[in-house]
Design a protein around this nucleic acid. Structure first.
Length: 1164
RNA sequence: GCUGAAGUGGUGGAAUUGGUAGACACGUUGGACUUAAAAUCCAAUGUCCAUUAGGACGUACGGGUUCAAGUCCCGUCUUCAGUACCA
């Protein structure tokens, strides 16, 4: 019995050791952080998980292991370490499960959290669980709601460059109005005076304030996902479909809460320079914020004189803009039948190509009836009677519009025609000769000085990053959705424009994105005036202009922008060149560099920088533009039509949102019977019958929705409740502050002392997929909390590392569905009756599969076919092989049934559910009776049957092996495939290590003096491991440990002076075995706060060096020489060596390079 | 298209400032132990030539700088990631 026990203790029994120390840590609260300490603080944080039903797979703990190693290392280094963990427990999957099963999401979530906790505990993390947070806990989301109210009660003052209390804005309004306020706000703000403000009703005031608040209610075009029944933020959409589920997303207008994150665009951008994140991640955020510096330019729209409408009403049918072309045609016929004498006379001269040009009389051009027209030459002849004098203006306008379409209009008076017919004909001939055939000509730009009314009151504002190219503008393009399109489109273009808008609206975002090459657009018929040249500029619409960026309009500079260039080319618009010495015959010159501006009046000869500055100056001078910085960052939609999220602390009175007093928080999520929207289309909260609500006095009462809504409008009551909930990122935007408290405090989200002690996160580890979501929103909320004086840091995460993903190694089997054509079909029913199976599916070896797929039905596959045919024959069926009917598919098999040699455990696989689902008839193995699977690296996922559960790994190899192996796989940031077979490497290392400490006969460590080699091994390990941890190069330290243990084993080291400090080095990586051996060496305390060993370089000093001797750069042999030998002596020693002589083979070296302590290179 | 990262044995990956390429493992092969298997231990393992001794080639490809290049420079290709008509 004793002997047995002894043997047992000699063995590395990882399961017992790990359970023992996990219990010890938990019982002794070893990793509970204190909020007061003499030690410096260090805050290590992981991105907290969403507790999904599937539990953890081996990929999930990767980042946690890395951060745990760092946290443990920092404890050894003497820091007071905060290393908490919690759960981002609001989320879609629990809600969808609730919709399917009726189980409350809280119940699902709790169960999932239990699994997570068990799985996390068994890996031996040094988390301080006393600070655990759950975002779905009312005590937690109370403060999420509280922060929401803070946002509502804040506005962003661009002058002080920070958020301020809304009260300061109100007092400004009531004393100065809004004209002196420089705030981040909606762009449709009307100026008002203090007097105006004070005369507004409460509702009017609230409406205005809403345009300034940092969270505001607005009708916005949102990304609506019908399948999920909710809106999504931009970062929740990937390639035009929802990130979760991959459902289509459409644009829809809805009233939603939004977060004015755009107010912080510049600070979010600047802040990136102050934090230690990877360049890739910073770049992603920079792109997302999308700052561009340039100018806005206002182009006044030229419009027709006001007489237009009147003229048309005075003379019905003569001019009209409506849809009554049939009336016009009737009228034209009428006029043709009843010509005036002058018309009649002229028609006699023009008809029948008498002037070598075909003329038509009383012809409809667009919306006008013209007297005579030659369509080919686009020449119009008007013969005016007395009526013309009454409508000179209208006729001039008519002329202009016709000329805009490329027509030339010439006018004669009745008397002229009748009196001087020949002169008139001469003039017509002259005009005809000047106008060549215009059949295929595109729309021409009109001439100067059209005399149009510039005071249409309309203008188009554009944003450009190239104000220096302003003189290159010869048209503009609006997004089809641009609000001015319908107002400026001329009647004659209306049909075309509307058709185009309809066409583009039909195209989904996705189609529009996929089809970048096709150029499309349409002319609106309208013109704007160039701010400097005063030339008219055509206004087009085109879908290459996005409504959501800038002002939804661009000034087109075809010579300087490829898209404008292509557009101009496509529609035959001129491409004026404003660059000196640049060839634009092939493509636009898009670069800002190495070019001077030409043909640009006051900008001539200037470079980009100078010209931009000057252009902005001149624009500001004439009040038609200004310098402007534009950001791509959009305000974030904050409402979700879901149940499982934070309820808003909001109700509405007369349609205006009111905050529930902070004293009444939390507003607890009410119970509902179903987790679906109501029949009326309200979010699920609309089903709630009872709301927890503090109503009267200080008592908490449970009130029904109806009771609330029907209550007196006095005080807080009356109105409607907000039925949306907050998005997933609400709770995760501030959780790192909540961890700073010792317990769940009710009076504050985190105390001032805690906040000032822990400040912010020193090291944050998590996935890069949160780059434009969580990591940006958190930064935004922290800046707000800082501005409002609740925290004292500007950034939440000082250093951030993105761990790479661990990929799965999927296993494939190859299916062959035998396709046989049955010749005597009539016998099928009879055969089936007897139990014949017509269709059979087999698993065949990969090689056979590939041959068969390429049409070679040899060997195995042929025998399979024959076998099936014989089987059918037994049932009286004649069959022949038909390739068309056959199927070949590789499919995933569960990786747990595959061993390290890629061999499938056929028996186990047959028992599994996957096999049953596939209804395989037989598995054909290879000659040795094994089935080898195919392999491929893919994302780890249930549907690919390649998920490896850490529970099994821990049970088979232990947590320390798992921790070491995850680190050993490769660099932390890198994507790398998981291969369970490889874990034996690190597991063997731990066994070897155990053996070194605990020998055959018991503990093998004594007080013997360490040897020089022992010390050398220890100290080079100390040096390397410390460097590695500080560089987050965890994979290389694992190798270093292996080398150290291999060396010490070879040295037969038993010295406590070596083996004890070595445990501290290994402890962050493999804490259980380190603790166990540490205690076996006689220590009573946990190893976790033992000081990290100090590196002593004196142990690494060598007396000799094994010099590599190379010839022409190629190493041939090595030579051991004393370290203190000088250059000359080394050279002499090397040259005298017989191997050198043999290498040189009689040649004399041209040159000998000696780098003492490094290398010798002989040239020659 | 643009931006960023990367490309090294059968596999994962090492290689400090340019200085012995392939550390450390996995896998494979051979051997020891065993009735056998597992476990463990030992040896070999970049490719090619050669019995050996040894030699040639070799870090995606093509050039260059250097006594010396996986590493620095120029060009090309490929892969991955992000982003996409951003005016």
């Amino acid at each position: 019995m004793m002997r047995l026990l002894k043997v047992y203790t000699m063995k590395y029994n990882f399961n017992d050791i790990e359970a023992k120390w996990q219990k010890y840590w938990s019982d002794n609260q070893t990793f509970k952080a204190s909020n007061s300490s003499d030690k410096p603080k260090y805050y290590v944080l992981d991105m907290f998980p969403y507790p999904s039903g599937a539990g953890l797979h081996v990929g999930h703990p990767l980042g946690y292991i890395a951060s745990d190693i760092y946290a443990r290392y920092q404890r050894h280094k003497g820091f007071n370490v905060l290393h908490p963990q919690g759960y981002d427990s609001f989320g879609l999957p629990a809600e969808q499960y609730a919709i399917q099963t009726g189980q409350h999401p809280a119940v699902t979530t709790d169960a999932n959290i239990k699994t997570y906790r068990r799985q996390l505990d068994q890996i031996g993390f040094s988390f301080d669980w006393s600070r655990e947070v759950r975002t779905s806990n009312p005590e937690y989301y109370k403060w999420t709601q509280w922060i929401f109210i803070q946002l509502f009660e804040s506005w962003y003052n661009n002058d002080s460059n920070k958020a301020e209390d809304i009260k300061t804005l109100i007092s400004k309004f009531s004393s100065e109005g809004n004209t002196t306020v420089n705030a981040a706000c909606d762009d449709n703000i009307q100026p008002f005076t203090a007097q105006d403000w004070n005369s507004y009703s409460s509702e009017q005031q609230q409406e205005i304030l809403l345009k300034y608040r940092l969270t505001y209610l607005a009708e916005t075009e949102v990304n609506w996902c019908p399948e999920l029944g909710t809106v999504l933020a931009n970062d929740e959409i990937v390639n035009g479909v929802s990130e979760r589920g991959g459902y289509p997303v459409v644009r829809k207008k809805m009233t939603q809460w939004s977060m004015r994150i755009s107010a912080y665009a510049e600070r979010l951008l600047q802040g990136l320079d102050t934090i230690d994140w990877t360049d890739a991640l910073k770049e992603t955020q920079r792109n997302w914020i999308g700052k561009s510096v340039g100018a806005t330019v206002k182009f006044p729209i030229l419009s027709f004189p006001n007489g237009e409408e009147n003229a048309s009403s005075k003379t019905p049918g003569y001019m009209t803009g409506g849809n009554n072309s049939h009336l016009l045609i009737e009228r034209a016929q009428d006029m043709r039948a009843n010509p005036t004498p002058a018309e009649s006379a002229l028609w006699y001269e023009l008809r029948g190509k008498k002037l070598n040009a075909k003329f038509r009389q009383q012809h409809l051009i667009n919306d006008f009836i013209v007297d005579f027209v030659c369509l080919d030459r686009k020449l119009i002849i008007e013969v005016d009677g007395k009526i013309h004098d009454n409508q000179i203006e209208a006729d001039a306008l008519r002329t202009q519009r016709l000329e805009n379409d490329g027509y030339k209009v010439i006018r004669f008076r009745n008397e002229e025609v009748l009196r001087d017919t020949n002169n008139v004909l001469e003039e017509i001939k002259r005009q005809l000769s000047q106008r060549k055939s215009l059949k295929n000509e595109k729309v021409l730009p009109p001439g100067k000085d059209l005399g149009w009314d510039k005071n249409s009151g309309l203008e188009i504002s554009v944003f450009t990053t190239r104000p220096d190219t302003i003189f290159g503008v010869n048209f503009m393009t609006l997004a089809p959705e641009h609000e001015l399109v319908s107002q400026i489109t001329t009647p004659d273009r209306k049909e075309a424009v509307e058709a185009y808008i309809e066409k583009t609206a039909k195209r989904s975002e996705r189609e529009r994105m996929a089809d970048v090459k096709t150029i499309s657009g349409v002319f609106t018929g309208a013109y704007a005036e160039h701010p400097f040249t005063k030339e008219p500029v055509q206004i087009w619409i085109g879908d290459y202009v996005l409504a959501s960026y800038g002002t939804g309009a661009v000034m087109a500079v075809p010579c300087g922008d490829q898209r404008d260039y292509d557009f101009a080319n496509h529609f035959g618009i001129d491409i004026p060149n404003i660059f000196e010495g640049v060839d634009i015959s092939e493509e636009a010159y898009g670069s800002k560099d190495n070019v001077k501006i030409a043909n640009s009046d006051f900008l001539n000869g200037m470079n980009y920088k100078k010209a931009s500055k000057r252009a902005i100056y001149e624009l500001e001078n004439i009040a038609q533009g200004e310098g402007k910085t534009n950001y791509r960052l959009r305000d974030a939609v904050f409402s979700r039509q879901r149940y499982w999220g934070e309820p808003f602390p909001v109700y509405y009175v007369n349609g205006m949102p009111q905050m529930i007093d902070k004293a009444h928080l939390p507003i607890v999520l009410p119970e509902v019977e179903k987790y679906l929207p109501t029949e009326e289309g309200e979010p699920p909260l609309g089903r709630a019958k009872k709301w927890h609500w503090l109503q009267y006095g200080d008592d908490v009462k449970i009130v029904s929705k109806e009771a609330f809504e029907n209550s007196s409008p006095l005080g807080r009551l009356g109105g409607e409740l907000e039925l949306n909930t907050m998005p997933g990122w609400a709770g995760s935007s501030w959780y790192f502050f909540r961890y700073m408290e010792d317990a769940m405090r009710k009076d504050t989200f985190a105390s001032e002392e805690a906040l000032s002690y822990w400040e912010n996160v020193d090291l944050y580890i998590g996935g890069s997929e949160h780059a434009t979501g969580h990591l940006l929103y958190s930064r935004f909320w922290v800046k707000l909390l800082k501005d409002r004086g609740f925290v004292n840091v500007e950034e939440p995460f000082k250093k951030l590392i993105n761990q790479g993903m661990i990929l799965g190694t999927s296993a494939f089997a190859y299916g062959f569905g035998v396709g046989l054509k049955i010749k005597n079909e009539e016998k099928i029913p009879e055969a089936v009756e007897k139990g014949c199976k017509i269709i059979s599916k087999y698993i065949i070896p990969k090689e056979s599969y590939e041959k068969a797929k390429s049409g070679e039905y040899a060997g195995l596959v042929e025998s399979v076919i024959n076998k099936k045919m014989l089987e059918l024959k037994d049932y009286g069926l004649d069959a022949e092989f038909d390739e068309e009917l056959s199927t070949f598919i590789p499919f995933h098999v569960e990786v747990e049934y595959v061993n390290s040699s890629d061999e499938l455990d056929v028996e186990a696989f047959k028992k599994g559910s996957r096999y049953k689902g596939l209804e395989i008839d037989e598995i054909f193995t290879e000659e040795e009776g094994v089935y080898k699977v195919g392999r491929d690296v893919e994302k780890m996922s249930k549907s690919k049957y390649n998920v490896v559960n850490p529970d099994n790994i821990v049970a088979d190899y232990g947590a320390d092996s798992l921790r070491l192996y995850e680190m050993f796989l490769g660099p932390l940031e890198q994507y790398k495939p998981w291969n369970t077979a490889g874990i034996t490497g690190v597991h063997n290392f731990l066994k070897k290590m155990w053996k070194l400490y605990v020998g055959e006969t018991g503990l093998n460590v004594n007080e013997v003096e360490p040897t020089k080699d022992n010390l050398k091994t220890l100290h080079k390990t100390i040096k390397k491991v410390a460097e590695d941890i500080e560089n987050f190069s965890f994979n290389t330290s694992v190798s270093t440990f292996m080398i150290a243990i291999n060396e010490l084993t070879a040295q037969k080291c038993t010295s406590k002076d070596i083996l004890e400090p070595l445990l501290v080095l290994i402890s962050p990586y493999a804490p259980h075995i380190a603790e166990e051996l540490w205690s076996q060496l006689g220590n009573s305390d946990s190893i976790s706060t033992t000081a990290f060993p100090i590196f002593d370089s004196s142990h690494l000093v060598e007396s000799s060096k094994n010099y590599p001797i190379s010839f022409n750069g190629k190493m041939r042999f090595t030579l051991e020489l004393p370290m203190d030998m000088n250059k000359e002596a080394i050279e002499a020693a090397v040259l005298a060596n017989e191997k050198t002589i043999a290498q040189l083979d009689g040649r004399t070296p041209k040159k000998v390079i000696v780098v003492p302590g490094k290398i010798v290179n002989i040239v020659g």
